[in-house]
Design a protein around this nucleic acid. Sequence first.
DNA 1: TCCAAACTGATTTTT
DNA 2: TCAGTTTGGA
Length: 786
Amino acid sequence: MAVEPLRLEVMNDQVDSDSDPPGYGVPLRVVGASYEEELLADLNPPQRVAATHHEGPLLVLAGAGSGKTRVLVHRIAWLVATGRAQPGEILAITFTNKAAGEMRDRVAQLTGPVSRLMWVMTFHAACARILRAHADRLGYKRTFTIYDDADSRRMVKRCAAELEIDPKRFSTRTLKSAISGAKNRLIDVEQYAAAQGSYFESTVAAVYRLYEERMPEANALDFDDLLVRTVNLLELFDDVRDGYQSQFAHLMVDEYQDTNRAQYRLLQLLAGERQNLFVVGDDFQSIYGFRHAEIRNILDFSDDFDCGEPVKLEQNYRSTKTILDASNALIANNSGQMEKRLWSDGEVGAPVVIAELDDEHEEARWVAGEIGRLIEDAEVERSEVAVFYRTNAQSRVLEDTLVRFDVPYQVIGGAKFYDRAEIKDALGYLSLLVNPEDTVAFARVVNSPRRGIGKTSEARILGFANLVGISPLQACERCQEIAALRPAARKAIGRFAETIASLGALADSEQSVAVLLEAVLNQSGYVEALEDERGVEAEGRLENLRELVNVAAEFDAGRVFEQSGEDEPIGPLEEFLQGLALLGEQDKLVDDAERLVTLMTIHNAKGLEYDVVFLIGCEEEVFPHARSLQEGNLEEERRLCYVGMTRARTHLYMSYARSRRNFGALGYNVPSRFVSELPSGLSERQVSQTRSTGWASGSGGGWGRGRSRPSGIFTASPTPPVAPASSTADPAAVAVNFALGDDIRHAKFGDGVVIGIEPGIVVVRFAEGGAEKKLMAEFAPITKIG
DNA sequence: TCCAAACTGATTTTT
DNA sequence: TCAGTTTGGA
């Protein structure tokens, strides 16, 4: 029954795994049935069923922490090692670079270097690779630029402006998302235009139409295009489709619940007749509906592909029983999902802590205090603590507080390195060198640094380019022919064209991206302009650019991005730009922090795990978010909560505040329904007694019926909750007379409460208007009251 | 062309 | 509240 394993000479010097869970370092010297046994030895029964699935479609329903990556990796290794598949026949697709990288590494550990023949990459990277090879079929050049969200929004904006659409009536954002929605559903312009109903839709149709004209003119593809154009390519050209269908005998997809219609179609086209489509996912963790992911894809998989029951992985290797039971109870409130119940044979663990705080500031102080206590008690490392929130805006108060409490942290998401203006400018230059038609990059760069080519001149250049049918860059070279230009502008444009031309020549001869980038920054006058500016901000920008040069140098040294594949050689510069365009910030940041608490949105937390997880802002309107409630997406919000909870290994904290400032206005929210959906037997409640109303009463409050009260932010305890030994500013020592939570009276401002202490400074929130003020502890006219 | 004041609008965002 | 963008004046 066992097929004679394929003998792979390259496997021999396979190293033993050091850190991975048992079973990952199986030396592949072993051949024969025993090797197969060894490969499967560490899998539990359902994992084994999944991993040894040979042909035909199969859905693996993999609950949180149930070892889905392990199953994917082992199946790949099993297919190859037993000779059921050639390495080159494997296409394994993920959504994130991080997941792809992890899978690549783990496959390599099992199979050795032959893993390089496999395509293990993201949807977008795979599509980009396919499109580069056949760009001409669709009328693109292989040097096409990939537009990120901001770039493509600029293009939408330009199109809308050109059509004289009132930007107040239809925001660029709205238009872009409507177009993106259409694309993800594989609705092309014609279909969209034909189906138009409202004025809004016909407006979108017009913009969509122009956008579809302008993008190919710029030889550019946005993220959606990468998928859609690949689908087009495979649908239109039988030979191309046949080629890939026979090449990829085995398709594997991770996080299948997040696929959208375009991705579904793509998989269908690639799977062909053989239908060797092995997908892994969890409907409970579908949280990207707003990005047009279709949960029906996973719910209907078995019917769609006419295969048997899904294999369910329900044994969880991550969390305590308590955390799992609470999560199961929560998700049971959703309807229309595939039955699944996570279980574990691990510890029962600590109860889920649910804390009620007065407002977001107290909530933040509570988080900081708990983190301090956990670390002091040596229960956990800082890097094993994460705080999740629903919206990025919530991180601010938290950050302020963590700084004040001397808790080192990192924030994932939010403003990204590659979104910074100076980085985009620098990359804009490079982009223009590779793809002279790139109008968005042109517009970015033409007057950056300032060289006296303003909006008017830019419009004239673009108008001329449009009229004659040449690229904006060519228009610059022929600026003598643009009559409307003023002499000064014409001169500036001429010089710009020369600069680009000379850089272009360098790009043709220079193989090092870093060298080229430095030349760009110097010759364009970009660095000079920043240096002249002086100031902290300019210094920061220069620093960022230096960092970018470092990234380029690293790239030069050893191709840091995904394999480019040998089938369609593209230049290093193109590869560099594509790598950056497809790279997310998460890919870089998540691991490198050794001793930092991690802050991120719950969305960003998917796929990660931490010993200790705080889920803050569990209030109606915040989480579930008001807008989701309006739009009837409650179940997706609940899944989001489920995802957040199941990230925790041993300790889960959830908190809500009685009041919270939102867009400047103070709001009073009730606790999230998600909190009340947790069985009371599994949780422990803590209620802060502090009230923003009733200032005069009591001496700072305390804690209600909690068994273990947290380290006393609001207790009468004179010691501040966190006093790191390393701290240069011991709060207690500096503000001798004041402690957090003290009620005070100010000669001018009236009564308030001490909400923060910094060296020599007390932060006081006053009852009147709830204003926060920083006061000099020594000199301010304040006295303790109560 | 550039800067600063007014205005606006505001989830989540693997790529 | 606050940041990103638009508008108007110099």
